[in-house]
């Protein structure tokens, strides 16, 4: 019914040092969906994300993207310390030969950073730096937004605020989001679909649809339906890890 934004067919990745980072994986992500990849460190979720971005080439298999316009958000804000917030956000436009900053200003506004265009990264809090990073990733109106544990280093309060804002932006703009996290709660709160991965070698062990209302307010995190879904994902994550441990 809906278009496929990203399709992976038997994609595997081995690193030159012999580590099998990702075993042959098939994955199809629908246009406009919010998908989270959850798993312990070393399960290949960041590798999978970088394969989708084209930052890594697969050892075997093929990756198809419906649209090449994408944004990438790293775990650190990854801002240029010598450039202002506005200049950082405008970077993708500049690299594309653009000189007009109006969409960069607009992207900053969208992330609630109206008054901070001229601020340098060191003058901003961790949460605000991450907002600049998201503004930069979305300034080119991408169809696909790839996020690699973007909120892992933030305090819980800031993380909840950013979760809320990210969900609202996604609903408004209809991006396809692939979101890597090691937090089950974060994955369930944000996503329509949670993919559980396990390590050695990395691969998908569960693919779960999250049946929760689209409208998710802050107190929703305390509701039974939310906690039940989290428990469900946790169980599958633990089962996968336990199976790994007994095999090893």
């Amino acid at each position: 019914m809906s278009e496929t934004a990203v399709a992976l067919r038997s994609v595997a990745k081995n690193f030159p040092n012999g580590i099998e980072a990702l075993r042959a994986t098939d994955l199809s992500i629908a246009e406009g969906s919010f998908v989270s990849l959850v798993g312990p460190s070393g399960c290949g979720k960041s590798t999978l994300l970088r394969l989708i971005a084209g930052l890594l080439a697969p050892t075997t298999g093929t990756i198809e993207r419906h649209d090449d316009r994408m944004g990438f958000v790293f775990q650190d804000p990854t801002l240029m310390p010598w450039a202002t917030a506005l200049e950082n956000v405008a970077l993708p436009l500049r690299l594309n030969g653009g000189t007009d900053d109006s969409s960069a200003r607009h992207a900053l506004q969208r992330l609630g950073l109206d008054g901070f265009a001229g601020a340098y990264p060191h003058q901003l809090s961790g949460g605000m730096q991450m907002r600049v990073s998201i503004a930069r990733a979305t300034v080119t109106s991408p169809r696909l937004l790839l996020m690699d544990e973007p909120f892992a280093a933030l305090d819980e309060f800031t993380r909840f605020r950013l979760n809320d804002d990210l969900r609202a932006l996604w609903q408004k703009h209809g991006w396809t989001v692939v979101f890597v996290t090691h937090s089950v709660q974060e994955a369930v709160f944000l996503s329509q679909r949670v993919i559980v991965m396990s390590p050695r070698p990395g691969g998908i062990v569960a693919d779960m649809r999250i049946d929760l209302p689209q409208e998710r307010r802050n107190d929703f995190r305390l509701s039974h339906t939310f906690i039940d879904q989290c428990a469900c994902v946790s169980t599958s994550l633990h089962a996968a890890t336990a199976a790994q441990d007994s095999a090893a």
């Binding site: 971005a53 084209g54 930052l55 994408m70 990438f72 790293f74 650190d76 990854t78 240029m80 970077l91 993708p92 690299l95 594309n96």
Partner: peptide, 11 residues
């Protein structure tokens, strides 16, 4: 990471 970002935008 910044290097990867530049690669991503085909700088």
């Amino acid at each position: 990471n910044l290097r990867e970002l530049f690669r991503l935008y085909r700088a």
